[in-house]
Design a protein around this nucleic acid. Structure first.
Lengths: 354, 354
DNA sequence: TATCTTAGTCGAATCGATTCGATCGAATCG
DNA sequence: CGATTCGATCGAATCGATTCGACTAAGATA
């Protein structure tokens, strides 16, 4: 019935039906500018009659130059990235912050295509938060600056004028290491986060660290070495509990004869949880036979220990990234932020067995 | 240098510099239509010189009528929704499916505003996947049909012509319950998922179930009651391990004298893990003193038991939803899909103590 | 009463790309 | 050799809303 033109009605249709000009109809909808109550009513009524669902976001964003969408780039597939609660907490923080300007998050996986992530170059983004993903990072930032899209990086060096949300990874880890030294530990091993995009497992060597681009893992390794320069270690393939188990078995297993470490510094709580499980498997007690220090301060579901760890404010980091984005969209040029972790002495560390 | 006009160059600028018409430049970029190699080169060169980063997605999507964005609606805040691996797996499935048409996911939290989620009405969405979120569901679907945006619902009844990705919740739970009965259990209790948007804890009553709109919880409760009509139970506030602990304490604690259940049917693996932990806390052994059945078949990090559960294909469900979206965008009208769970007999169920 | 506001509306340009139909030249065919 | 065709390119309309400047009356002021 009525003047339905098969396709969705447009603002112009509504305006025509209400007997006003499109401009007035627009004003009536957006609330900007002076419009008499009567006119607004008329327009709204016409809209209702025509089943008009509001301005087309595509047209609106073209005209306004804003889409209300903030991209979030994670360089793994969704299921992998979100297994670590740290990432979820950060995502939550971002969501909270940008929610205040009614923006939403577009989830982009860095490794979509072969070369450059398709969506990063083609999505209608107002800004982007990069989850410290080293491999793609450089390319991504270059792409974004060319497109003129503001970006913020969480844990990762993007150089020049990209605000960075950082953490005191090295200092924090050093704190944990010093705690172990004070307890009397000398043979300490490291369980490291992946160092390369390839996520190859293997021994943790200085050379490999130098060649890496994953700031987080690098800094945490250095922090441990600051206190125990000779600490050996293994690199895992991901921040999962199972990976921690694998690493733990290798470090604590029969292999090394008398040089079994008396303490292990894990670069994430999930890894730490895995190490503990591996220790239990091998009949070792924690912290009696081996002390374990984690990183993150997340509650690892199902872990029966109060983990000694370095708590980082994950949600706040995401929040800060989101805030930075909001400010950039407001034309400001936010500073980089550096968060600090706090040492939490739990029940997984004790003096080494005499 | 050159003819830089302060703002970002447009396709027209590039065309002008290359000495061709905008139409030709567009053709050269999109690869559609016949363009001589030489011309294409010229255009691309001009683009490079002007630092043109490709067509503006906003303009493109206005013209094309597609934005390449699929909304995913979860009705909790991000940090809550993603604590359950089931949701992550589903999200991953959706990402995988829509990735094939180079679309990305816009994460929308249903409860953004007070009334209707702002973004659902204003975001440039090509389609939407609703994660069975009962409270908002009806409103959301209405909104989307009005806007003419295709939608798919995972676990939730959206009525008429919205494809649904369902699961055999009732039948599957019944299977688990029958397993318990065969083992000889008679006093069985249920730990249920939240029944209302308010997420209120409390006893599980038939009345409350009837009043609920959360299909998943309802069906799973009915499945249990099919076998144990008198089973009592408690409703939790979320699918977390801690909630399971709370529920477990209540059901297994001293309170009920001799009527302590010999088996518990939890509506999710996380809840089951919590129940097990509560049992251990209370000095009960699993499955010696109490048997526990879960639902989902996810690996609960840190749970030392091989949980008896009903494995559902979470990732496949997400994948199916994504595929349905892709098909709808291609103009098809995909059927609803119903997945089935498989019973996994683990080590958390045994005959009741004589 | 004449002039100055000012609230309310409207026209028209604009955002940046896509696309359909038209045009023009060259190559092919009868 | 004239006619047909096909490939390459261009013009102009279009997608749907926003916004700036102009215009009209009605009310305020002198």
């Amino acid at each position: 019935m009525d003047t339905d033109t098969a396709s969705r009605p447009t603002l112009a249709d509504v305006a025509a039906r209400a007997g006003v000009s499109p401009s007035t109809a627009s004003l009536a909808f957006s609330g900007t500018g002076p419009v008499s109550g009567a006119t607004r009513e008329k327009v709204l009524a016409a809209a209702k009659e025509l089943h008009y669902a509001g301005p087309d976001p595509r047209a609106r964003s073209l005209r306004r130059g804003r889409s209300g969408i903030v991209g979030v780039v994670i360089d793994e597939r969704v299921s992998e990235a979100f297994r670590d609660p740290v990432n979820i907490a950060m995502l939550d923080g971002v969501a909270e912050a940008i929610g205040e300007i009614d923006a939403a998050m577009l989830l982009l996986t860095g490794t979509t295509g072969s070369d450059t992530p398709v969506s990063l170059e083609t999505a209608p983004l107002d800004a982007v938060v990069l989850f410290g993903c080293s491999p793609t990072l450089e390319r991504s930032v270059a792409l974004l600056t060319q497109r003129g899209i503001p970006a913020v990086v969480i844990e990762g060096d993007a150089g020049d004028d990209v605000p960075e949300i950082a953490l005191d990874n090295r200092e924090a880890t050093r704190l944990g290491a010093e705690h172990l030294r004070e307890l009397g530990h000398e043979r300490v091993a490291i369980v490291a986060l992946p160092l390369e995009p390839s996520r190859a497992r293997g021994p943790l060597t200085a050379a490999r660290v130098d060649a890496s681009t994953v700031e987080t893992a690098i800094e945490r390794a250095r922090g441990a070495w600051d206190v125990f320069p000779d600490a050996r270690g293994v690199v895992t393939a991901a921040s999962y509990v199972e990976e921690g188990v694998i690493a733990g078995r290798e470090l604590l297993g029969d292999g090394g004869g008398g040089d079994r470490p008396t303490a292990i510094i894990a670069q994430s709580d999930l890894l730490a949880a895995g190490v503990i499980r591996a220790a239990e498997e091998l009949g070792l007690t924690v912290p009696g036979d081996v002390s374990v220090v984690g990183f993150d301060g997340v509650a690892v579901d199902g872990l029966d220990y109060d983990l000694t760890t370095l708590s980082q404010p994950s949600q706040a980091k995401g929040r800060a990234a989101g805030d930075a984005v909001v400010r950039m969209l407001a034309g400001e040029r936010p500073e980089s932020v550096r968060f600090t972790s706090t040492f939490h002495r739990g029940g997984t560390t004790a003096p080494p067995r005499a």
